[in-house]
């Protein structure tokens, strides 16, 4: 493209224009450009970098591996820096960074990615609580409050497939609203709901398996454990 094409017929400054003393106007123009770049850098440092712990925790939740999380975090901030000009001032930088984080994570897992289409959130919600009902009849719901589930949940989360994991991590661990998760994941809210509910149901099933294996089961009351097999 001809340089003149870029600025309404006006010649665009060449890289050396700023040192051309014959055209005094260009020198301050380049200085202003450098100043703008520096201001952008300062804004990036002030508005994006403070979220490195949040990004790290989110990456760790997704990858469940410290080395993989490190790679995702580094790539996230690199991409964020390179596309900082697209960030809308005043919007939620944490949410924006989470979007990039998940994209970086998915790219790194592309070969393992599984595509699951689930749109009916109501059915997922219902089936989830129906499962809970059945477990409740065995008294298994009380198990949730009797034992320390955190280790089992971390393991279950580790095993949870995408796209369910991202939805659960964002809403249940990172306390994002459905709307925010929808924006981060780039899917409609209904899809967030269905992924979230399905993910929770899978986690519940894994927890009940864990509870049975740990001897907390009430299977002697009906041997309902076979329903999850």
């Amino acid at each position: 493209m001809d340089d003149r094409d870029r600025a309404g017929g006006q010649p665009a400054p060449s890289p050396a224009a700023g040192t051309n003393e014959e055209d005094g106007r260009l020198v301050p123009q380049m200085t202003a450009s450098a100043e703008t770049a520096r201001e952008d850098d300062l804004r990036f440092e002030a508005e994006a970098l403070p979220y490195i712990d949040d990004v790290y925790r989110f990456a760790l939740s997704l990858t469940r591996d410290a080395a993989d999380a490190d790679d995702v975090v580094q790539e996230t901030f690199l991409r964020a820096y390179r596309s900082w000009h697209t960030f809308q001032p005043g919007s939620d930088a944490r949410r924006w960074l989470f979007t990039i984080t998940r994209n970086v994570f998915l790219r790194s897992r592309e070969r393992e990615r599984r595509h699951v289409d689930l749109e009916d959130g109501d059915l997922e919600a219902l089936s989830s609580f129906v499962a809970a009902t059945d477990q409740g009849r065995d008294g298994s719901d009380q198990i949730l409050s009797r034992i320390d589930l955190a280790p089992a949940l971390r393991r279950a989360l580790n095993e949870l497939d995408e796209p369910f994991k991202s939805a659960v991590v964002l809403v249940d661990l990172e306390d994002q609203s459905y709307e925010a998760a929808s924006e981060i994941l780039g899917v409609p809210i209904g899809t967030v709901r269905s992924r979230l509910f399905r993910g929770r149901r899978i986690l519940q099933e894994k927890l009940m398996t864990y509870a049975r294996d740990a001897g907390f089961t009430t299977a002697q009351r009906g041997q309902r454990g076979s329903k999850d097999d």
Partner: peptide, 8 residues
Amino acid sequence: ALASARQA
């Protein structure tokens, strides 16, 4: 319980 799994 799920929220408690968050590594705050």
